[in-house]
Amino acid sequence: MLKVHRDICGYCGCCVSVCKEGALELIDAYLEVGPGCTDCGVCAKACPVGALEVGRE
């Protein structure tokens, strides 16, 4: 399960653009993780600040 460190997140949407599953959505200043997330970790890698963490990491 993808964990969003909300104290670090800059709600920029960089992660949303690389999500193949379309599981992420940026709703103003809140990053929503949908049920389509497969824990692939691409978003966590792209994040400019390290706000995302996948469970198995």
Binding site: C12, C14, S17, V18, C19, K20, V42, K45, A46, C47, P48
Partner: peptide
């Protein structure tokens, strides 16, 4: 979808 290598993380 933007390929990971082609997103400028900024």
């Amino acid at each position: 979808t933007v390929p990971l290598r082609e997103i400028m993380s900024s």
